[in-house]
Design a binder for these strands. Structure first.
Lengths: 218, 218
DNA sequence: TAGATTGTTAATCGATTAACAATC
DNA sequence: TAGATTGTTAATCGATTAACAATC
């Protein structure tokens, strides 16, 4: 039994659970900063506005991190979730598209705190090539294949205009990129060994206008 | 029966459905641009990689937009979804926090195409006040209450550092803001008549690292 | 008309919540 | 030890898919 468990490490965690993990991590980080060293699922559930049952159910997908009668040790749980999320190692990122959004993300130093290091930015525009965003150099798109070949790049962010997002993604995949952080408002259809996370900014705006409409009509 | 329907306009649409609407809108927009004027749920389902059943089920929450034996008229459906999403009117936005992210969003002209107009940006930093982002003026935070009083502001984007995000949100609500587009990595707890859409950028990054980890271990 | 495809009901699947025995 | 709280099973709830009669 113990052996079988070891073999099939990842026993199909539901997407709903995975989506909640970063939120747990955030709340536990806050508790840690407040110097709180233990918490019960009930107390945490009140803070997070979810059920205690869900918290216990979620965490038990990955192991029994708590202790009956005591609750969860905050620091321990925080670190365990970090491990589950893969935050115990560093990641090298490149930004493809050094426009406004690409620049904003490159300048956003919070990501580095969690181990996500932006190493280079790329753009087609000749006037941008050679310039820097903070400490980060902008290279031409021609330099992309060589850079990826000679450096370990874990994640590529796509911040190019939507018209060229798909071809950019294809190019990245051809260069061997296995994870894409996509900010273009398109659904990338890529080989299934390539991981894609898309941020659809305009979708969230539309949901806002939907909610606004269905509130005032009330 | 017809009367009853009229009375209770919004018969509790599930959040899952609402979340999918912008995606339908996007695909229909693409079809429209391609000059395609009709589509069946089956064909659309193949393009979107969902079931035809789900498409029909989703759309029928809002009315029967299709025709048996024919399918859906692309332009009609596109416009209907626009109406459902509230995209048939314009919205005035302000950006609170004129840092990198605020600047990026202010410069992102695509939103204006959908009727979301950014009118002003606000920041505390004296050196930014009076400057412009493209055409958009940056005002000091002191000017915020008066501006909101004298102008219709539908949506406020929060792009300030997370440390001051909560107090910024509270301030906005006090000024009468009813919809917040939040980019700070915090969960805003506001009166329930205030709509909040949060974009947790770092959460998406963590999901990427989770997936990367659970792929390579395979 | 015959074929196609919707709108809608019923069946299934998955995710959340409740309950409680195990145990610290 | 008694009280607290977990881990986990069972019950419920909601969302997705299948099926098909209605109808263009």
């Amino acid at each position: 039994m113990g052996m079988e468990e070891k073999i099939m490490e990842s026993k199909n965690i539901s997407p709903a659970v995975i989506k909640r993990l970063p939120r747990y991590y955030r709340y536990l980080g806050d508790l840690l900063k407040l110097g709180i060293d233990r918490i019960s699922s009930k107390d945490l559930s009140e803070k997070m506005q979810v059920t205690a049952s869900q918290i216990r159910q979620d965490l038990n997908n990955f192991g029994g991190f708590g202790q009956q009668g005591y609750g969860y040790n905050v620091e321990y749980l925080y670190n365990e979730i970090a491990k589950i999320l893969g935050l115990d190692k560093d990641y090298n990122l490149i930004i493809v598209g050094a426009g406004n959004l690409g620049t904003a993300i490159t300048n956003y130093t919070d990501f580095a705190k969690r181990g996500f290091y932006i190493r280079k930015a790329f753009d087609v525009k000749p006037e941008l090539i050679g310039k820097k965003i903070g400490e980060i150099e902008i290279l031409g798109m021609d330099s992309l294949p060589d850079f990826i070949k000679n450096n370990q790049v874990d994640i590529a962010a796509i911040t190019v205009p939507k018209e060229i997002a798909t071809e950019t993604a294809t190019k990245l995949v051809k260069c061997g990129i296995k994870a894409i952080w996509n900010f273009a408002p398109v659904d990338l259809r890529l080989p299934k060994d390539v991981i894609v996370e898309t941020i659809h900014l305009s979708d969230t705006l539309m949901r806002l206008s939907y909610s606004l409409k269905n509130k005032t009509s009330k």
